[in-house]
């Protein structure tokens, strides 16, 4: 890691002020930042440590929903009885992510900002071309080993996948992030790479995520997070799906359905076309499989990742059928 100075912030305001300095970066759980600093991707001059701030780690769940402080640890949220009861997909997305140790370190705010695992992004000394690191330098991944790259939301400039699990569940259930008084829907937090893949979120300079909120819904309560990967544990998703369903009083007809995908797109991916095609219908296997394929509208293969176009709809379908009692 490049030499940096360490500053332990006494308050959110102090941290915000410190962050206005060029070269300052926030240190929360550190699991992404220190990793990337070792890779030479992140080169902070100052680390502003906010892990000792009080009051940013609370988790509260009531009839309206959940509010979770940005410094709550992934593991705490995963194990929180209220979250597990009202937002099973959220809890599962966390407990299926990383390892127990990393979940004890990584914060919710930091997790939402975790960066891509693209191998080319992570080796700046070997692959100088990376538009995410170095705008305009090109993309080393295109034409390379792309097994873990995105098929949705890609551009000529970048095909790096967003590795998140939690964000996928949050996108499905219309969660929002709070930066002090500013509130942004999770879905709007992330930006597609387009021609500027270095610009990943709508956070402004000095803005600090202070918490997230998840509105309660029947669909969120009746939800699941399904993650498919090569290894049984401790691995990012090859494809994942967060699904929640609310049925009409008849118990069969879909009143509300939420579908989001992970491991396949450049940002956490809400599959509204799938949702639209199933609302008002009675679920059956064929219809669900057909609808799930809509999640891949606009998908582009880059060679090694073409399997994701086949795999992801199957993951979506299984998750929907599971929640519909059909799997």
């Amino acid at each position: 890691m490049r030499d940096f100075s360490y500053f332990r912030a006494a308050s959110t305001e102090e941290a915000s002020r410190a962050m206005l300095d060029a070269g300052a970066m926030l240190l929360a759980g550190g699991t992404t930042l220190l990793d990337l600093a070792k890779c030479g991707v992140s080169e902070p001059d100052t680390l502003v440590d906010i892990t000792h701030l009080a009051g940013l780690g609370d988790i509260a769940v009531d009839a309206n929903g959940a509010t979770i402080g940005a410094l709550a640890k992934m593991g705490e949220v995963a194990d929180h009885p209220g979250v597990k009861a009202a937002f099973p997909a959220v809890a599962q997305s966390l407990s299926l992510a990383a390892s127990a140790q990393l979940r004890n370190m990584a914060t919710i705010g930091g997790n939402l900002l975790q960066r891509t695992r693209c191998s080319y992004f992570r080796e700046p000394g070997v692959f100088p071309a990376c538009n995410k690191r170095n705008p305009g330098s090109g993309c080393s991944a295109i034409g390379g080993v792309t097994r873990n790259h995105a098929v949705l939301g890609t551009s000529r400039a970048c095909i790096a996948v967003n590795p998140g699990d939690l964000a996928v569940a949050l996108v499905a259930f219309d969660a929002y992030v709070e930066m002090g008084r500013r509130r942004v829907a999770i879905e709007d937090l992330y930006m597609l790479p387009g021609e500027t893949p270095d610009w990943e979120t709508v956070l402004k300079n000095g803005e600090i995520i202070t918490g997230i909120g998840i509105p309660a819904s029947v669909a969120a309560k009746n939800s699941t997070y399904l993650k498919v990967r090569d290894r049984q544990s401790y691995e990012f998703a090859a494809a994942s799906a967060a699904v929640g369903i609310e049925f009409e009083a008849d118990g069969k007809t879909v009143r509300d359905i939420r579908v989001a995908l992970g491991g396949v797109a450049t940002k956490p991916w809400r599959a509204r076309a799938v949702e639209q095609s199933l609302i008002g219908t009675v679920l059956d296997v064929e219809a669900v499989e057909k609808a799930s394929r809509l999640s891949m509208e606009g998908a582009v293969s880059h060679g090694g990742n073409s399997y994701k176009i086949e795999l992801a709809p199957r993951v979506v379908a299984r998750a929907i059928l599971t929640m519909g009692g059909l799997a």
Binding site: G30, T31, L34, L47, D49, G75, Q101, L102, N104, M105
Partner: peptide, 19 residues
């Protein structure tokens, strides 16, 4: 590199000593 910080297991390779 797993050790405990305040009784919780963490990875010491991604933890700064200063933290």
């Amino acid at each position: 590199c797993t050790c405990h910080v305040d009784g919780k297991r963490v990875l010491s390779c991604l933890t700064l000593a200063a933290q």
